[in-house]
Amino acid sequence: MSETISILCVDDEPDVLDVVVRELASLEDTFPLETAGSAAEARECLDRLRRDGTGLGVIVCDHIMPGENGVDLLVAMAGDEQWRITRKVLLTGQAGLEATVRAINRAELAHYIAKPWENRELLHVVRRQLGLYIAARGLDPLPYLRHLEPGQAAALLRHMSDADR
């Protein structure tokens, strides 16, 4: 049986979160979408995923939020064995140079999307990152194939042989 891989979207503005969820809705039949309005909520969500044994493929995170900021959350996740290989995407208009550098160096940030972003840009990025996550985990790509970028799918499938089932 294949493992469930979720996507977590964190943003304090409900309107932005709405747009994000709408853009990623096509992935939801395979990758459950989780949302959080703050870093604290995101941490609750992570605890729940940990309990359920669900993997987290991608986190799409805003930076400036009330309470803990996004980059700090990502750095904390990078230090946690369970979320270390989760692909981390920053979706923000206001992260300064310092915070961005910190995200790259300390949280191994995978991608930076500046708000406002172009239509489908986010979907494209998330699909790519999911492919990289599946490759890094060495998971069987078949259950996720229909959502992956064709080029990536070809590379992932190369490991299959005629003796596979």
Partner: peptide, 16 residues
């Protein structure tokens, strides 16, 4: 080539 590798290649060419 292997049936599997051929399918993988053709599918990724055709799907989009």
């Amino acid at each position: 080539m292997s049936n599997t590798a051929t399918t993988a290649m053709m599918m990724t060419v055709a799907i989009p």
